[in-house]
């Protein structure tokens, strides 16, 4: 018989249980598989009731984030061979989110937070009628490009203990996306976004644990975005204190 690996998967069936339990499945230790393939093997061949989200299986749609041995991971981007077949792999829903069922978590709070930071271009001028792009140099693009790579996979929220302690905290991805627009040379909305972000639940909620950046599968560096935001805000404040007659 071919080599197998054991997946120990958190199950939560709200109609039957008040809290999650674990169920184990033995799956082939296929060296060409990612972890998501192993879960799909369970779903297709062993237990059709195991529930999880997935779609693109190429690391860009952001659906399949889970806790793997206690670490938030995009399961379509983790080779099965990252784990030794001798030890079971523990798979749980992303932590700090309410669980709807099995490995599916409720991310509606994130969508509210995302819209609250106004993640769209804000400008003072009226839209020009001619068909011409706004100019933006490659260097200006580089200023925000990294922060525009967020796929909303929620791994950073699952890595951040502040999210677990304070559910109102805007969180790494939302603040990084706000910063993405603030740093965009086409945008003039930084001040409007300050109203939401210069709050305890905004950037100042961040205590700089730094784990969000470590788990980000797209190297967005939300921790960096937040600290840069804090620096800029603090500098503005200092300027307005020292030069009250016109800091800008």
């Amino acid at each position: 018989m071919a080599e197998t690996i054991k997946l120990t998967v958190a199950r939560y069936r709200p109609e039957e249980q008040s809290e999650p339990t674990f169920q184990s499945y033995d799956v082939p230790y296929n060296k060409d598989w990612v972890l998501l393939d192993a879960l799909n093997h369970v779903k297709n061949e062993i237990d059709g009731s195991l529930t999880f989200r997935w779609s693109c299986r190429m690391g860009v749609c952001g659906s399949c984030g889970m806790m793997v041995n206690g670490v938030p991971k995009l399961t379509c981007a983790v080779p099965l061979t990252d784990y030794r077949p001798s030890e079971p792999v523990r798979i749980e829903p992303l932590q700090f989110f309410p669980v709807i069922r099995d490995l599916v978590v409720d991310i509606t709070s994130f969508l509210g937070k995302l819209s609250s930071v106004k993640p769209w271009i804000i400008r003072d001028d009226v839209e020009a009628t001619e068909v011409a792009e706004y100019r933006q140099s490659p260097a200006e693009l580089d200023d925000y490009k990294q922060f525009s790579m967020c796929i909303n996979c929620m791994l950073c929220y699952s890595a951040c203990p502040v999210v677990g302690l304070e559910s109102e905290f805007a969180g790494p991805a939302a603040i990084a996306l706000a910063q993405r627009y603030n740093l965009d040379s086409r945008d003039a909305g930084a001040e409007e976004r300050q109203d939401v972000l210069n709050e305890h639940e905004g950037m100042w909620g961040c205590t700089f644990v730094g784990e969000c950046t470590k788990v980000c599968p797209k190297n967005v560096d939300p921790a960096g975005a937040i600290q840069l935001y804090k620096m800029a805000t603090a500098q503005d404040w200092m300027k307005s204190m020292l030069l009250p007659w016109g800091a800008k």
């Binding site: 669980v99 509606t108 937070k113 609250s116 203990p161």
Partner: peptide, 25 residues
């Protein structure tokens, strides 16, 4: 916070794991 999406039409029985006191351990 503004969230334009339709809320669940019945309350979901969500499981919320409490943050354990020793979370940092």
């Amino acid at each position: 916070m503004s969230n334009p999406s339709q809320a669940p039409t019945v309350d979901l029985k969500l499981y919320r794991r409490p943050m354990p006191f020793g979370w940092w351990l």
